[in-house]
């Protein structure tokens, strides 16, 4: 593989990692609200979170461009006050990937949370644990398989995010040209078939490894938590 191809692989890994890091904590919060919250607008929040699953990724990228563009309602203050520019940057690619994979994490975390027996939290209460205490010492450890599964799935999916990234962050080698974008570029280049095939294989292997890892972690955690695994 050429240096350029390696760069695409490295960049994909970096973007996927950053996207997971960015969305993990908000995803746990949103999953909590959706699973346990009783407030008006819960259904709306649920729909909003799941939007990236059904809206064309290009539309998500366009939406981000409108919001986070240097003249957008969020992008402008970020740019003017903090000098942060997200469009056409690696950070921007990570943001677009994070938004796209957010529903995946939320779903997995929510499943994990719904698997936590509320009776155990009640037991923690009677033993003197306040809300934050019992979340940290009981709920969080018990839902951690869901969190980990969500993170790994989102990471594997994030390696391949195309539409939102190319729309919001463009296709800049070394900057925002992740694996799928490099594959796309290769197919557009005369004689790029072998490059495309090589990168496709790498992409396939990484995704596969990610899913297998998720499975192994889930089993291990299940054993740790005393469930049949």
């Amino acid at each position: 593989m050429t240096a350029e191809e390696w760069m695409a692989v490295r960049l994909s890994l970096e973007v996927a990692t950053r996207s997971v890091l960015v969305s993990l904590v908000p995803a746990v919060g949103v999953a909590w609200l959706l699973a346990r919250g009783r407030f008006p607008g819960r259904m709306l929040l649920d729909a909003l979170v799941h939007l990236p699953l059904v809206v064309p990724p290009v539309v998500v990228g366009w939406g981000l461009l409108m919001l986070f563009g240097v003249r957008g309602p969020i992008g402008a203050p970020l740019h003017d006050w903090f000098g942060i520019r997200l469009v056409f940057t690696t950070e921007g690619a990570a943001l677009a990937t994070a938004v796209m994979s957010f529903p995946l994490i939320v779903r997995a975390v929510r499943l994990g949370l719904e698997g936590v027996d509320p009776g155990l939290e009640a037991a923690a209460r009677t033993l003197g644990a306040g809300p934050v205490d019992r979340f940290v010492t009981v709920t969080l450890p018990l839902m951690s398989p869901g969190i980990l599964a969500g993170a790994v799935t989102a990471f594997a999916a994030g390696l391949g995010e195309f539409g939102a990234v190319i729309t919001f962050a463009s296709n800049i080698p070394g900057e925002t040209q992740t694996l799928p974008l490099a594959i796309y570029s290769a197919t557009q280049t005369p004689g790029g078939e072998t490059v495309a095939a090589r990168l496709a294989l790498v992409s396939f292997s990484l995704a596969m490894a990610g899913l297998l890892l998720a499975e192994v972690i889930a089993r291990h955690m299940g054993r740790l938590l005393g469930r049949a695994g």
Partner: peptide, 20 residues
């Protein structure tokens, strides 16, 4: 008072030990 401030120890039918 919330349960965590009542200092009533509870033994449930299903033990409810923390599995982790």
């Amino acid at each position: 008072l919330p349960p965590e401030r009542r200092r009533c120890g509870v033994v449930f039918q299903d033990a409810r030990l923390f599995p982790h």
